[in-house]
Computed example of a mutant assay.
Amino acid sequence: MVRTRIAVALAAVALTTAGVATAVATGHGSAVDVRPAAASVPQFDHIVLVMFENKKYSSINGSSSAPYFNSLASQGAKFTQSFAITHPSQPNYVALFSGSPQGIVDDTCPANLGSKANLGQQLIGASRTFKGYSEAMPSDGYTGCSSGTYRRKHNSWVDFSNVPASSNVRYSTFPSDFTQLPTVAFVTPDMCDDMHDCSIGTGDTWLKAHLDGYAQWAKAHNSLLIVTFDEDSGTSVNQIFTVFVGASVKVGTYNESINHYTVLRTIEASYGLPGLGNAASKSPILDVWQ
């Protein structure tokens, strides 16, 4: 009888300890989640990735200036150890799109990268679709370096000749019927709304006004929203705020180290595509999926 009670007590302690460890690892401190990581990334009908500018993680996380960013984080998977690749902006955009900065070290425009492999080319070659939506770009297919508050340095897909001009479009053409979105869409706000030239609050308001509808729709329509930053505010740490919100996402805080290559690899894995460049050596994110 005594031995039985001891055995039961030890088993209870073991289960409690395991549960606490899992809760800490996943960020679910009050609700223990003992489910294992998914075996693969879900194949989403649509993925929309939005890139903001030049803010370190601590400037967004918990900030009263970014209530919507933090609201999104509470609805999805927040990554507390997410990092950009380098400084300044342009090589990060190129790295996220192609698995490498492709030798780019500054914001010099134009960066003509020819037919080097990239995510847009991968998707189109696999009978999927890709579009990049740039706010304030003056016309679809535009290849100029700047116009008003638009900057080509934040539009990496235009740098590759194997991504058709029809994939390079104005944000004003972003569909209100989200079923009409391409398989993968990248969204670039203009130089004010992306926080480069304007405040965190400006970017926060823009994100809520323009993409909350998609974020809520995605949860029930096998789709995903990724919100991230190109780089931090110029520090050597280069830690950025990154959130996944949508279908199949386990709400929580995740502390594995990820970067732009990890995000690229995760998008590729959703559609059975091989990793490009430095993304090939990254494992896709698996622990955030139900």
Rank of each mutant, 00 (worst) to 15 (best):
V163D: 13
Q180W: 04
D197L: 11
L207R: 05
V245E: 08
Q239Y: 02
H221V: 15
M191D: 15
S223T: 07
S161R: 00
K131L: 10
S176H: 12
L72Q: 08
V237F: 01
G203N: 08
A279E: 06
T183I: 04
G234H: 01
T183K: 07
F130W: 12
G120T: 02
N168D: 13
S98V: 04
K131N: 11
A218V: 03
L10S: 15
T205S: 13
R151L: 14
S100N: 09
G272T: 09
R265W: 13
L207N: 05
G76N: 09
H260R: 05
T22Q: 15
A269R: 06
Q121N: 12
F229M: 11
I258E: 12
P182L: 15
Y142Q: 05
I240M: 02
V24Y: 11
Q81Y: 01
P175E: 15
L181A: 11
V163A: 12
A280W: 02
A111H: 02
R265A: 04
Q239C: 05
G19Q: 03
Q43W: 00
L181D: 10
Y271L: 02
W289A: 15
S71T: 14
V50Y: 07
Q81C: 12
A215E: 12
D287R: 09
R170P: 00
F97V: 01
Y68H: 09
T86G: 00
S147E: 03
D140E: 07
T183Q: 07
M191A: 14
S167L: 04
N259C: 01
G141H: 08
R170W: 06
T253F: 04
D106V: 06
R128I: 00
E256Y: 14
T22F: 03
G144E: 01
G275A: 07
Y142L: 10
F178S: 05
G103D: 03
K55L: 12
D107E: 09
D190I: 06
A66F: 05
T173V: 13
A279M: 05
L273V: 08
F174M: 13
D107N: 15
S127K: 12
L225T: 04
S58V: 01
G120F: 05
E135V: 07
H154D: 06
H154L: 04
L211A: 04
K131E: 14
G252N: 02
G76R: 13
T149N: 14
F130H: 02
S233L: 02
S270T: 12
A12R: 11
Y93K: 03
D194M: 06
Y171I: 08
V8K: 10
F83S: 14
E231W: 00
V34M: 10
N118A: 05
R128M: 05
V2E: 15
F229V: 01
E53H: 07
Q122I: 05
E256C: 09
E256Q: 14
D106A: 05
K78W: 13
V20E: 09
A215C: 10
R152E: 01
T202Y: 01
T228N: 04
D177C: 06
S167T: 07
P36D: 07
Q122S: 13
P284T: 05
R170N: 11
T173W: 15
F130Q: 02
S89E: 05
P91T: 12
R128L: 15
M195W: 02
C145S: 08
V245P: 12
L273A: 09
F52C: 01
T143E: 14
S283Y: 02
I47M: 08
T143I: 10
T143A: 15
T228H: 07
L286F: 08
A126S: 14
A25Y: 11
M191K: 08
